[in-house]
Design a protein around this nucleic acid. Sequence first.
RNA 1: GCCGGGAUGGCGGAAUUGGCAGACGCACCGGACUCAAAAUCCGGCGCCCGCAAGGGCGUGGGGGUUCAAGUCCCCCUCCCGGCACCA
Length: 825
Amino acid sequence: MDSYNPSEIEPKWQAIWDKEGLYRAVDEDDGRPRFYALDMFPYPSGDLHVGHAEAFGIGDTLPRYKWMRGYNVLHPIGWDAFGLPAENAAIERGVNPRQWTYQNIDEQRQTFKRYGMSFDWSRQFNTCDPEYYRWTQWLFLQLFRAGLAYRKLAPANWCPKDQTVLANEQVVNGRCERCDTLVVRRDLTQWFFKTTAYADRLLDDMELLEGGWSERVLAMQRNWIGRSNGAEVEFEIAETGDRVPVFTTRPDTLWGVTFFVFAPEHPLVGRLAETGGTAEPVKDLQDRLQRADASERDGDSREGIALGVHAVNPVNGEKIPCFVAPYVLMEYGTGAVMGVPAHDQRDFEFAGQHGLEIRVVIQPESREVDPGEMTEAFAHEGVMVRSGPFDGTRSPDSIQAVIAWLEEQGKGRAATSYRLWDWLISRQRAWGAPIPIVHCPSCGEVPVAEEDLPVLLPDDLDFTPHGQSPLAKHEAFVNVDCPSCGGPGRRETDTMDTFVDSSWYFLRYTSPEEQSLPFSPQGVERWMPVDHYTGGINHAILHLLYARFLVKALYDLGLVKFLEPFTTLLNQGMVIWEGRMFSKSRGVVVEPSPLIERWGADSIRLAMMFAAPVEDDLDWATVSVAGVHKWLGRVWRVVHEVASRPASPAAADESLEHGSGPAERLRRAVHRTIKEVTADHERVAYNVAISRLMVLTSEVQDAVGAGVGTVLLREAAESLVSLMAPMAPHVAEELWREALGHPETVVFGPWPQWDEDLARDEEVTMVVQVNGKVRDRITVGAAADEEECRTRALASPRVQSFLAGRGIDQVIVRAPKLVNLVVRP
RNA sequence: GCCGGGAUGGCGGAAUUGGCAGACGCACCGGACUCAAAAUCCGGCGCCCGCAAGGGCGUGGGGGUUCAAGUCCCCCUCCCGGCACCA
């Protein structure tokens, strides 16, 4: 027997697996149930780091387990190959982004192969391939025709460094998610997808995901959508007759309104200021805010300027003063709010600063609230007072009644407001899918004909950033005839956000050769939805929300028949090193290749899965590759030891099968472990599964030492190898085929079966407690009944000494595991 | 502030249903083998008292339910994540 040498066996099996085509998904019905296991596809920026090793190692385990359990598994891989880093490389080093990307893909593919990933390589594609982005463009056209893709002038987040707009989602703390540059506001005409049209469904359909997605991710999506229910109420401006709606979640406080506030950017503000004679100070305020960076706005300021006009409260006809104040945001609700200082903290502070009346209309039941004494707004429940027809009604229960009354009176209506915005998909960059639109002076925005797709990216672009896509400088690209009238037109030069590419790639895997549609109906019918999706928590919102949105849009277009793309979602934790995430751009990288050379891929995969539960973040410092490597050495030796033993006479095994000798002990350990590790695979508790297999390894070693017969030893060794195969595929395959002599691969199982009787221990340790404290442990038969347990417990001298002659009040028996004697103190 | 998730030895973590807390591993300590080292193997390892036998304490803190609580209930502290002048 040679010693365990992964650098020899790993490349060997990788080559054989490749040749045998084991990991190809079978499209035809072959009688096996189907399973679609997907990993979030990687962005090919340089080589992989150990963060990838963790993510993809975890993602590789379930499909392998499913194969062994008899499933026909689709486990594809591809590349999210458009995006800024390729273009930045082009700018900084003059390389062609296509070449740069394809070179990185080659490198990553090699590394994946050295990890022994069970991908179906026959289905791989790159999103930057014209055969792929052609269909990204096609999907854009479908959304455009459905009115879900549109262009508007909007304030956009502009990153001065990357020279492009960013989606709201890509701005973190006022900075560019990618390069950390302070983002500025710019008004630009941009393309959007109408995600808000699906806000309710994105929220309500999460019901379908309960149980399959973590509470954490569901909560993040819920927060992101940010639905709040309330009412829209119209106020009239007394001096001009303008009708201004406000959104409120507290229509029950309408009788407490004492002022009215506009956001500085509100379109009516300029005109109202003219009317009120306050045009000059208001203009000054607007200009000052316009110049200020979003991040410089004082979050706590309650400054504001009286407009000199008044609003009429529709519920009581009162005239109240109007203000303009930066604490009211144009982006949320209607850009104007009713001021209820008694019951809203911000309004309370504003009223204090500007000497406005505080009128209490919700009174707590236990005490009187005196406006003069208040130090903060009263935002709790109470009884409505000074509220006309609603006096004496309990709030907030009364909110629905107030809304009904408003509707009846024609003064307002139930309304819902969302935090979610429409998805800004325009990017002024060239390494992305061109938006297939032609601007025509006479026809407007004209979609490119489907048969003319793809709109190809030219290969000879000048990448110097100058605020427009490099495509805009490429005359041959830009100048084009209008597809509608044939007159001269200009091609749209924005490209699509790369999140568009990744919002449908999982559909393409089901039929990557499809020529007439982005995905074939049969392929999607066959494989979708994804049964198990593995990826980082960092994509908990954006990617998953966009993919969910797109699938719902496709559902409405009749292109798919399911509402949610990912049935179960596994968000593996991130690998942290010296307090930070791995990131090539920040120089925090542990290269996997030297680790593979030293320890082998199996050890690295196991080490990461063993170090923590899959969903927890993992500190690289706590990962002990040496520890699991040592274990694999033990497995290697003991399996070879078992395999090399001459067959013992069956009688020898049989004689050992009875009683409680080492043979019996081994047998029960094997069956118990099969049962438990099977459950661990089902619940992706790989750290626990590995620890159980370590224990089983010791059991087998002990049994070898105790002279247990070959039949049982072999059953144990084969079970051990099978159970570890999904996590350590190379060593398992080597031991299965070479040491144990199976002609067939271990990849397709069979998964070991357990005998329920054997999985239960024959003897158990019964705990005897006195007043809840463990006083003795007695070995009893697993079948011991209540009476036997009671008798044995009372017979224990150790227990007797703790009873000390005191009377026994109660005897609790949970046969056969526990007896608790309750005595008086 | 609101929402979600957590807190278990020196460290990572285990404990499927309320029933032996600390599996498994790392680190550390001791031993075997060795000229020596590496590798490998054996043993120890929650805290306190004790030579030991043994006993007491112990799952962030406080209360409660229960024969029995890491697990259930109430209150609190802290940590992580999301959202946040969101009307």
